[in-house]
C-alpha cells in the first residue's frame, strides 16, 4: 500500500494528512481528535459515526478518507460551542435525550439533516430520519422529544429574524 497526502476540511479547519488507502473517514477524523465522531458497529448499522460530507449526512465508517479528499466535513462538535450550542444540542440536553451519550453526535447529525429539509417534521418523519441511528440505552422517546423541541425553537428564531 502507498500512502497519499490528502486534505480534509473539518468544521471549518483545513487538515493536510498522509494516509493509506484503507483508512476510513471515521478513523481519520478520530485521529485528528474529532472524537465526538463515535466508532460503533463499523458497518453502517448504528449511525454513531454520522457526519456531514459536502452537506449530506453519511456513515463515516463506510467512506474511505481518500474519497473525502478536498471535501467539506461537519461533525457534531462543529455545530455549536458550550457557550452557544446548536438548538439541537441544547434540546438534547434539556430533554434528557443524552444517556450514555454514545449515539448523541450521530443522532444530532441525522436530526440536523432532517430539519434542514423539513423544519416542522411529524413524529413519524423524525423516527424515519433517525432510523439509521441506534440508541442502545433505548432513549428514543426523549430523543424524538428533543428533535421536536429543537424544531420549535428554530422556527421561533426564524420568525423573529
Amino acid at each position: 500500500m502507498k500512502a497519499k497526502a490528502i486534505t480534509l476540511n473539518v468544521n471549518g479547519r483545513r487538515h493536510q494528512v498522509t494516509l493509506f488507502p484503507n483508512v476510513t473517514l471515521l478513523e481519520a477524523l478520530r485521529d485528528l481528535s474529532y472524537t465526538d465522531v463515535k466508532n460503533g458497529c463499523e458497518k453502517g448499522d448504528c449511525g454513531a459515526c454520522a457526519v456531514e460530507l459536502n452537506g449530506k449526512v453519511i456513515n463515516s465508517c463506510l467512506v474511505l478518507a481518500w474519497q473525502a479528499d478536498g471535501a467539506q466535513i461537519l461533525t457534531n462538535a462543529g455545530l455549536g460551542t458550550m457557550e452557544s450550542p446548536h438548538p439541537l444540542q441544547e434540546a438534547f440536553a434539556d430533554a434528557g435525550a443524552v444517556q450514555c451519550g454514545y449515539c448523541s453526535s450521530g443522532m444530532i447529525m441525522a436530526a440536523k439533516a432532517l430539519l434542514d429539509e423539513n423544519p416542522n417534521p411529524s413524529e413519524t418523519e423524525i423516527r424515519e430520519a433517525i432510523s439509521g441511528n441506534l440508541c442502545r440505552c433505548t432513549g428514543y422517546t426523549q430523543i424524538v422529544n428533543a428533535v421536536q423541541m429543537a424544531a420549535e425553537k428554530m422556527m421561533q428564531q426564524r420568525a423573529q429574524e
Binding site: 454520522a50 453519511i58 456513515n59 463506510l62 439533516a113 432532517l114 430520519a129 439509521g132
Partner: peptide, 9 residues
C-alpha cells in the same frame, strides 16, 4: 431503502 444515512451513499 435502508436508512437516510445509507441512502446518501
Amino acid at each position: 431503502f435502508a436508512n437516510p444515512l445509507v441512502r446518501n451513499r
